[in-house]
């Protein structure tokens, strides 16, 4: 069952299209990564999912219901954290959750449970202004979990965190999915982060989806880059170009391969032509290169 479905979701801002017909499908129980560079429309999509931006009727369905007509019902079962956590800095962590309890008619005993889940029990009485960013993010997650929702929508939850904070957040997200069965929709501009956390993902670029599927499918789909350095790179480039797209950059060969076995084929070709191999390694692609490879045709792809 799909918990989130968007149907040709479009959104304009100031006459400029921000979202151009997005069709998302997020399965129940998954950790779904929503990947895209800054400005690609991730936060706008999340705002639309949460009813913070006006979108046409039936273009967003959560739990099978239209956000336009069943907003309160949907939000009762949806927790969210949009970019940096919104908290009352002049109050304690406990008071922040207490206010939200009173606003949502949630029993007060839930506060202790939530502080424990996000490991803030000892800091609950401290003012939020004294919290580190990591603690604020965790309190933001606690606030999102207040009504024990089935769906969590987290917008860049590791933004600005130090490595320890990122690790804690990753652990927390996995725990919420595995131990509490929450479906988690998480946006990020970091490919490796989404690959580590998510079972499914969608990639957004300039308001359009360029990929949607299992994380493993993405790995198979996009070309990997191989970096090579040989005793004669010009000759090597000519040989490799017969089978794979190749270019020479900064004195090194950059070769686009599709499968792991391609590295062995290249290695054998160079060896048979008596070229010494000084270096042959895969290069992890950044998001921009990945987008290029996902959107470019085969002849352009590298």
């Amino acid at each position: 069952m799909n918990i989130i479905e968007t149907n040709s979701l479009k959104y304009d801002f100031g006459g400029k299209p921000v979202l151009n017909g997005i069709d998302l499908a997020v399965q129940q129980g998954s950790i779904f990564g929503f990947l895209g560079p800054n400005g690609s429309g991730k936060t706008t999509t999340i705002r639309a999912l949460l009813g913070l931006a006006h979108v046409p009727e039936k273009s967003i369905m959560l739990f099978g219901k239209d956000i336009r007509t069943h907003r309160i019902e949907i939000l009762r079962n949806t927790g969210s954290l949009i970019e940096y956590p919104a908290l009352y800095n002049h109050l304690s962590g406990y008071d922040n959750l207490h206010i939200l309890c009173n606003l949502t008619s949630t029993p007060k005993k839930r506060i202790e449970q939530l502080l424990s889940i996000v490991s803030l029990t000892d800091d609950g009485s401290k003012k939020v202004s004294k919290y580190s960013l990591g603690m604020k993010q965790r309190l933001g997650i606690a606030a999102a979990l207040l009504t024990d929702p089935d769906l969590l929508i987290l917008d860049e939850p590791t933004n600005g965190l130090d490595p320890a904070g990122i690790r804690d957040m990753r652990h927390l997200i996995k725990m919420l999915n595995h131990d509490f069965g929450k479906t988690i929709f998480i946006s990020s501009h970091l490919l490796y982060e989404v690959e580590m956390l998510c079972s499914h993902l969608a990639i957004l670029n300039e308001g359009k989806l360029v990929f949607q599927g299992k994380t493993s499918e993405l790995r198979d789909k996009y070309a990997k880059l191989l970096i090579a350095d040989t005793s004669d790179n010009s000759k090597a480039a000519g040989l490799i170009a017969q089978h794979f797209p190749v270019r020479v950059t900064n004195g090194l060969l950059e070769i686009a391969i599709k499968e792991r076995n391609d590295a062995a084929v290249i290695s054998n070709t160079l060896f048979r032509n008596e070229l010494d191999i000084y270096r042959l390694e895969t290069k992890s692609q950044n998001l921009e290169e990945l987008f290029f490879n996902l959107t470019a045709n085969d002849s352009e792809r590298l």
């Binding site: 913070l52 309160i72 009762r76 009352y88 949502t104």
Partner: peptide
Amino acid sequence: SIEHSNNMWKQVYTLPVS
């Protein structure tokens, strides 16, 4: 300003209330 300065509107408007 309690809501404006802490950017709380996004939190408030995603609560299950009208």
